[in-house]
Amino acid sequence: MKGCRNSGGGKRVQRRRWGGAGCCRVPGIHWAVLGGLVAALGVTLGLTLGVAGAWAHGPLFSAGPETIWKGGTEITVGLHDERARGHGHEERERETFLEIEYGITPDWEVSIELPYTWKSEDGFSSDGLGDVVIGTKYQFFVENLPGAQRKAAVFVNAKWPTADEKTMPPLGSGAWSVLGGLAVGYEGRRWYGFADVRYRHNGTGPQGLKKGDTLFLDVVGGVRPVLTEYDEPDTVLMLELNWERSARDQRAGVTLADTGGWQLFLSPVIWWTYRQVALKGGVQIPIASELNGDQPDADYRALFEAVYHF
């Protein structure tokens, strides 16, 4: 469950995520980066914002409706990397995490995620345990068709403020946050389609700081170029469109100017699987944004995950 991963982070990272500058930006360099990544396909690093897929294929940066089978366990080891630059600031955050999911029923799963984070901001750096995330997902609708499934699920994740917020830069916000949402999807032999809406509510942290709540909307399409059989390696390509809008932060009830705003990302994703092993990765590339005040622009967000289920 990655729904709350971005709710952690240092002051500036959070400002970038939850608020910011004023004008709409579509940096041309991002298109060059996108072209290179699509051509490379194997280069699959990224950052996650969503509730990633369990036993079946699902989106990487947004939420999918899939749940693991009854009694099934899935272990994920992931790496994410993100960078933001501009307005005289430079921030970078890297994280590795272990995630464990368990299927209580075929429709209901629970999960826990344990991250370790490295951060650097304007010459300062820190590292340590990140915010632990616990989550659950319930698939309330599933329609099984020959070679395809339609499904829908609701989910909720809670981020526990386990990261140290007193480091420089802070590794966490020191506040709880809860993310809930609805995801729908179609998974066929050839084509994939997903959509979701998520809302993250942030609690109030030390010194009365409350990060602005965030709304996420995502649309995803995917294709399996070659219809492989069970004992063959399988590849699926996806393209996600991720939109997020954050309210301004508040400190002791006072709204902070350089926070809040919206960003739109285009995110190519690749899945490679063989039996119960999956490697997946992708990059979120910002294509438009409108951040309030003085905030650095997202440069990229990348995620790579290795998954094993049994």
Binding site: W55, A56, H57, I68, W69, G72, V142, N144, L145, P146, G147, A148, Q149, E187, G188, R189, R224, T228, E229, Y230, D231, E232, D234, V236, T273, Y274, R275, Q276, A278, H309
Partner: peptide
């Protein structure tokens, strides 16, 4: 019904 991918079929 519902078998869409090899990875899913492992269950």
């Amino acid at each position: 019904d519902g078998l869409a991918c090899p990875f899913c079929a492992y269950g």
